[in-house]
Simulated scan of single mutants.
Amino acid sequence: MKKFWICTLCILFLCSLLPVSAAGPETNAKAVLLMEKTTGEVLYEEHAHDQLEPASVTKVMTMLLIMEALDQGQITKETMVPVSAAAAGMGGSQVYMKEGESFSVHDMLKAIAVASGNDASVAMAEYLAGSEDAFVEKMNAKAKELGMNDTIFMNCTGLPAEGHITSAYDIALMSRELILHHPDIRTYTTIWMDTLRDGTFQLSNTNKLIRFYDGATGLKTGSTDSALYCVSATAEKEGMELIAVVLGSPTSQDRFETAKALLSYGFAGFSLVTAAPSEPLSPIPVTLGTQPTVQPVLTKETKLLLPKEDAGKLTTTLSLQDTIEAPVAKGQEIGTLTVLVDGKAKETIPIAAQEEVPRLSLWQVYTALLSLLFCSQ
């Protein structure tokens, strides 16, 4: 028996010397997910594809379609949007718009992003698509385009409706699309307090992280009796922006604490690193070209999401042609940059010609030879 306990203690001691992998954040929500914006990589997830009610986090898609309409010139921030009887009568979270009133798109976005206004959401939906139902069709089409395979939208507000479901992963996808391609949404999602109706109506952000989490950039909260408390929370530090999705938390405070734990886990453990050559790329000689050299350029900027302990282990190897025979097409591949982490290849980036270099004609070759001949005399 004595030998048994000695062996057991030895095993426990040896196990204590083994490296322990970083544990994920503690959560008690129905589903959570942490995603990095630039790469779209998932850093942590629990029940990420469970189909759940999103409540007003639905409005991430509503805001996305509004921002797309702005970018496409369909509307401007000064466009005045009328409020219908249907919009005014939505109930739930609202800014108490009245039938017949009109608000600018700028104020509508404030009402949606800050106060989660159902009335503003429906008014914008009707203005952009003719009806809320037609707008919801656009929402579902966009969801399909983004690969949100767990999602079916039944309205633009997130009010309870049979069959209105999504997942933590899908919410992260649409949140990423919004902040990656429409960064101006931060103008609204970072507002803590503001007003409507020339200062007579107060707005206070439902997302308390805006004030109480360093680096918070948004994005949208939601809660109903059936969905419980939800949030898609975004924050940026040291050039890296993260998206923390929390669905089905038991209390409002719990959803924010869970979101903070997810975001802090990501910022503490990961870095976004840009891959680049160790030295500037030098021009490559071109034979029989109308110009003597061509400038090589990377075909894309590559950012890698790495555990912080690996961030300093990134190296690159460059492979370029010594010379190129004309003609050279713009964008023609003339080399590669291999990105390695701790000596292992992670990605290969093509290197291309920055400009076109036509081939010399026979007459140009002849005149060039004559010029060389006379210069040598």
Rank of each mutant, 00 (worst) to 15 (best):
K2Q: 13
K3P: 00
F4K: 13
I11N: 08
I11E: 08
F13L: 15
C15M: 14
P19L: 12
A22S: 12
E26L: 13
E26R: 14
M35E: 12
M35S: 12
M35P: 02
E36P: 15
E36F: 07
K37F: 07
L43T: 07
A48G: 01
L52P: 00
A55T: 06
A55R: 07
L64M: 11
L65A: 00
M67P: 04
M67Y: 12
L70N: 11
Q72G: 07
G73C: 13
Q74N: 14
K77I: 05
S93D: 08
S93Q: 11
Q94I: 08
E99V: 07
V105P: 00
M108C: 12
G117N: 06
Y127H: 10
G130R: 12
A134G: 06
N140Q: 07
K142F: 02
A143M: 01
K144I: 10
E145N: 03
L146Q: 09
M148R: 02
N149L: 11
C156L: 06
P160W: 11
A161S: 10
A161L: 11
A161C: 07
A161Y: 07
H164N: 01
I165C: 08
S167G: 09
D170M: 08
S175R: 08
E177N: 05
L178V: 01
I179L: 05
H182G: 00
D184L: 12
T189I: 05
M193Y: 09
L196F: 06
D198Y: 10
D198T: 05
Q202Y: 15
K208H: 14
R211N: 06
F212C: 13
D214K: 13
T221C: 08
T221Q: 13
T224H: 10
D225P: 00
D225Y: 11
S226A: 15
C230E: 09
A233N: 12
M240W: 02
M240Y: 12
M240D: 06
I243T: 00
G248V: 02
S249I: 00
Q253R: 14
R255E: 11
F256L: 01
A259K: 11
A259T: 01
G266E: 11
G266Y: 06
V273F: 11
E279V: 14
P285G: 04
T287R: 14
T287C: 09
T287M: 12
T290K: 03
P292W: 10
T293Q: 03
Q295V: 03
P296I: 03
T302Y: 13
L305W: 06
E309C: 03
A311E: 05
K313G: 02
T317C: 01
A326H: 09
E333C: 07
I334M: 10
G335F: 00
T336W: 03
L337T: 06
V339L: 10
V339I: 04
G343S: 01
K344W: 10
K346E: 14
E347D: 15
E347Y: 13
A353V: 08
A353K: 04
E355R: 05
V357K: 05
V357A: 02
P358N: 11
R359K: 15
S361A: 09
A368K: 05
L370F: 00
L370M: 13
S371C: 02
L372R: 12
L372K: 11
L373G: 00
S376L: 09
